[in-house]
Amino acid sequence: MRQPLTDWIGRQETTDDRITAAPLTGWRATLDKPDGPAQDGEVLPPLGHWLYFLPRARASDIGPDGHPRRGGFLPPVGLPRRMWAGGRVRFHQPLRVGEAVRRVSTIKDVREKHGRSGALVFVVVEHRIHGPGGLAVVEEHDIVYRDPPAADTPPPLPRPCDKPAVWHEPMRADPVLLFRYSALTFNGHRIHYDRTYAVEEEGYPGLVVHGPLIATLLADLAARHAGGRPLTRFDYRVERPIFDVDPFSLNGAPVGERAAEVWSLDHSGAVSMVAEAEW
């Protein structure tokens, strides 16, 4: 008899790391930032902690999609597709290059549902990151597992944007950008760099742009309009994927003096990701 997935609720994992300069330098180069090499003492940009605490599964423990095989800390969900669905991040104090850091991860919730496209499992993981000065980042990360959609399943209806953008930046994620971001985050998921696998095995029209990459670009957009003040909150939700075969855009608008809404639109103008930022 299968062990209930809810038995994983409350499971914890502790990981230690050091905020080294090389990943931040690579992040700047990948996003075409002019800042140059990172130096000790520099503050990480918003969501820069995603460059650390990376998975280190052995090659023999990797599944056919490039992800580590199921089990261990995350529940052993049997559904084949795993997607980054969104999250909520609170920044309590900065993390700096050179600091030793610790992350305590906890499975907060596991829910099984059945939608139009089949079985779904939602997993919420909380990460609490501590630096030398105490608690620095609290993050809730939403993961969804699902079956591949049936051939006759209609795609979800696109949601057009219903708000005007004050900030607008056209973007295109070419294969080099996607490969470099995969390398930066040690993400082996083949949908981001293996076009044959993405198209023929998973049925996508092209390479899938990483959800964390889009969230990072949106957080960076908000931070550049925050007047030098650090972000204190960033909540984001994925609505539909973006692919390398078409351009997309980053958009945003202030909400009062200390917040903003930011969102990405695909080539058709449909909303891809929405986020709220505060500083």
Rank of each mutant, 00 (worst) to 15 (best):
G134V: 09
F248S: 12
D266A: 11
S105A: 13
R103D: 07
E126N: 09
A165R: 05
G71V: 11
G252R: 03
R233N: 08
S105F: 00
L265W: 08
E200N: 05
F122C: 02
I107H: 15
D35T: 02
R229L: 09
T30R: 10
D174P: 07
V137M: 03
P254L: 08
Y52T: 08
V255Y: 03
Q12F: 12
C161E: 01
W279H: 10
D7M: 07
P132S: 02
L231H: 02
V97H: 08
R28Y: 01
G87E: 02
E126W: 00
R70M: 12
A260K: 01
I62H: 04
E139S: 09
A226D: 00
D246V: 02
P23C: 15
G228H: 10
M83E: 03
P241K: 11
T30E: 03
D152Q: 08
Y193L: 10
G86P: 00
D174G: 14
S60T: 14
Y145I: 14
Y193G: 12
G211C: 09
E201K: 09
A226F: 01
R28H: 09
E202L: 15
F248G: 03
R128N: 06
G63I: 10
V274L: 01
Y197D: 11
R69W: 01
I191G: 08
R18E: 15
Q12R: 13
Y145V: 04
G72E: 10
E278G: 11
P254N: 07
S117A: 13
D220M: 04
Y193H: 10
H168Q: 06
I19H: 03
R69L: 15
I242V: 15
L47W: 02
W167I: 09
D35A: 14
M1H: 03
P170A: 04
L95D: 02
D174S: 00
H189N: 08
R88N: 12
G269V: 00
D109G: 12
V121M: 14
I242D: 01
V121E: 07
V274A: 13
I242H: 05
D266G: 15
G227F: 04
A21E: 15
D61F: 04
W279T: 00
L74W: 07
P68D: 05
A100C: 06
W167C: 08
K33Y: 09
V97K: 08
